[in-house]
Amino acid sequence: MELKDSKEKQKTYETLFDKPYQKDIQLLPFFELLVEMSNEGLLKGLGGKLKGLKIAPYYGCMLARPPKMNKQKNHYGLIEKTMASLGGEPVQWPFLSTCCGTFLSVSRPEISTKLVNRIMQGAIKSGAECIVTACAMCHLNLEIRCRPENQLPVFHFSELLSLALEGNGSKGWFKRHLINPQSLMEKRHLIPFVQG
């Protein structure tokens, strides 16, 4: 955003990366790509494979931004929109944008544990069957710092997208989850779970 408007910043870019600045290249966050796709109607009627799956959408602090960007468009609601177009049912819950503790999970795990379990309990109370996040760091923190009694499967939303879209291309992938989503996936007839 700033790079586009500032000649000075473009110069810094050129000296840092030793490449000319190309003003036609536009950086598009993954999220915005999905907005575009949804605007063009590409996310509609995808078969409803996630039918009835109750989802707690979790953005964490990913969409929070400095006041300078207050007037930019915001993307809250996109996980809900995408998941609903695949047949999922997003729930309303209070922790959708509460930070998971990021790196404090390493250096002050007790703080992160407290936050993560608060978030997980909130999701369970809201009646969700799983949490869908858009951030890999949140995904990891929710899985590793969650106490056994609060465990709820966590998916990155691209995982559910691929599940709903491509059928069995993700075989063997879901066993890499630290919170095993197998029973939920079987219950919802989502994918044959490959053991091994």
Partner: peptide
């Protein structure tokens, strides 16, 4: 040091003070 710069404060601030910065 406990501030992770998650920007939640900056989103809450009614007067656009950039606390995270």
């Amino acid at each position: 040091w406990l501030c992770v710069g998650c920007n939640t404060c900056s989103m809450e601030c009614p007067n656009a003070v950039d606390m995270a910065a």
